[in-house]
Every structure is written in C-alpha cells, then in structure tokens.
Design a protein around this nucleic acid. Sequence first.
DNA 1: GTCTATAATAGGATAGAC
DNA 2: GTCTATCCTATTATAGAC
Lengths: 192, 192
Amino acid sequence: MPAPIMSREELVARLLELFRERGYDGIALSDVSAATSLGKSSLYHHFPGGKQDMGAAVLEQAGAWLERDIVGALSADRPPARRLDAMFAALRAFYGGGTRPCILAALVTGSAHELFQPALGGAFRTWIQALVAMLTEAGVQAAAARELAQDLVVAVQGSLIVARGTQDPDVFRDTLRRQQARLKAALDAAQR
Amino acid sequence: MPAPIMSREELVARLLELFRERGYDGIALSDVSAATSLGKSSLYHHFPGGKQDMGAAVLEQAGAWLERDIVGALSADRPPARRLDAMFAALRAFYGGGTRPCILAALVTGSAHELFQPALGGAFRTWIQALVAMLTEAGVQAAAARELAQDLVVAVQGSLIVARGTQDPDVFRDTLRRQQARLKAALDAAQR
DNA sequence: GTCTATAATAGGATAGAC
DNA sequence: GTCTATCCTATTATAGAC
C-alpha cells in the first residue's frame, strides 16, 4: 500500500488551478493525471464519481475559501474600513493581481453550468450578502448597500474577463482600486 | 448537387449561439451537426479547418456586429447622448436582457484562449476605444473617458457572469441602467 | 453542397494486481 | 493508495458516392 502522495487539500487545490485556468470542459482526466502525477485509477479512488466529483470538490474548497477569507474578513471584529481592506487584500491575492481567472466564472459555462448551478448561485449570493450585511451594519442604507455590493462582485468578475481578454492585468488593478475607494467613501458618508 | 440549405451568415449565427451558450470546449461537432441539420462532412466543406475554423468564423461575425452596432452607434452623426442610447439598446438586444452570454467571455477560457487570443484582445480594445473616442469628442477629459469606458465594458461582462451564476438577469438590467445614467451624467458635466 | 461510411484518436470509466 | 491494462463511447477528421 503506497502512502498518499499528497493531502486531499493539496490535490483539490491543483484541480482548482486546472479548472479555473482552462474551464471544466477544457480539462481532460489526462490533464489532471499529469498535473497531480496520479494515475487515473488513483483519481477514481479519491473521486469515485469521476470528473463531476472533482468539480464538486473544487467548488466546496472555493466555498470554504470564500467563507474564511471573504465572509470572515467582512464580519471580523474590526472597524468597517479595515474589514473592507482585508477583503480587497484577499481578492488581490486569490486572483494573482488580475492574472488568474475566477473559478466561479470558469464554471458558469458548458457542462459545469448544468452540473453545479446551485453551488455557483449560492457562492455569488453569499459573497454579495456578506458585503450588504457589513455595509448596512456600518450605517449604509439597504438599497445603496445592495447596489454597492452587486457592483463590486460584478466589477471583479468583469475585470478578470477583460484582463484575460486583453492580456492586461492593469484593468483588474485599476478597477479594484476604484471600487475600494467608492466603498470607503460610502462608509465615510454613512458615519455622519 | 444539393442546394445550400442556409446562408453562411445564418450558419455562423447558429455556431455563435452554440459557442456563447456552452463555450468552445463544451461544443462537439455532433452538437453543431444537430443545431444546423448538416452532416459532419458538410460542416467540413464550409469550414475546412474544422472546429478551429468555426471559432474563427464566429469571432469574425462577432467583430462585424461590434463594428456595425457598437462602433457604428458610437460614431454616428447624432448628439452624444443619442449615440450612447443606441449602444445600450444594441447591448440589451444582443445579450437578451442578461439571459445570453457574451461570445467574447465564452472564448477567453480553455483552448479558445490559446487559439483566438489576438482577436479577443482586439475586440475588447476596439469597443473600449470607440467609447473613449466618443466621450472625448463630447468634451470628457481623456483620463476620465478611459475610466468610464473600461468600467462599462467590465460592467457588461461582469453582470452577464453574475446574472448567469445567480440565474437572475436583473443584475444585468440594473447594472446597465446605472452605467447608462453615469455616462449620461458625464456627458452633461462635460457640456458646460 | 450534402450524404453514408469509416478511420484514428482521445475521452471517461472500470477491473484487478500489489 | 497506487499501478497497469483494458473497455466503451464520443470525438475529430477523411474518403468517396451522388
């Protein structure tokens, strides 16, 4: 019995990397095999349901990250402005400053859309809801908070697409900087 | 010699529909065959290079639409505000009010990214540039125009992703309405 | 310009040894 | 928990008739 070559977390992390870069339908099990140095049978040992199981595991790990680094940052016991900064730092890190695609966007298309829609919808809603909660708690009106939150998520997704399409990560960086300033301004305005 | 069953334009339009909905790697030639009622050999007659040729044809048609309905609207001989309205009308129509994905976003991932990157980058840049030109012509400062233009394209792409992820086209509708108001306001401010 | 038939390969998945 | 070997189906692509 050979010992496990890597932890499940590391394994799923590599899958996530593959899926976000090339999409669900763009990845073959042979790609996974190459990226993990595991034979196909080993992969089926870890994911009995095959590729679909892999997608589910990746989404689960992404959900955990969202919960810990985004929702966690936004609901931390700190001043609202510091919470915002923490979320933006997490976003910049996770998306490699605009060079790495979002796993959610990678899975909204093709077969993944049919297979994982509920989880995808849940992730987007969780993210938006955490932002709304933080903003309203800081005194921003409900309608304005909803608008700001939606705009942020939209801006992240859109700038990642445009950054990749134009091969220019500056779009992501500039967009995030502006969103951060706008949200900060909303917090300041609500403080009065 | 059987007569052609449909025009090339109609043929490519159906391919575009397939690729935007399910992505390049999510479509098999059998899908194309079913959607066009053409046998595989007929498809190879129209696209000797196979699937890659189909992708190129789709991008070419999308580029023509961009040139005619977006760049055309933005550079028409009308007041700037009317040009803006025409662009937004075209966007709402092309994206089915938020229910239909963008072909550019569908092709930034997977094999399509490697195959078509130059055309994709060109399309994004053309769109942004046409907006910048219109805004500066209307008196908006260059830096502000660049920011507004980038934000619009980012907002369109992002809201389509989020709309699809959450199964809620309202995100697209609301986002476009706000972008339209913002751009109108910039035009008004520049008029003085 | 379209068809049927076929080749060649790649894909997802399983069996069974160690 | 990993491997080699194998299966079956789908996929891309071509040949040649009409």
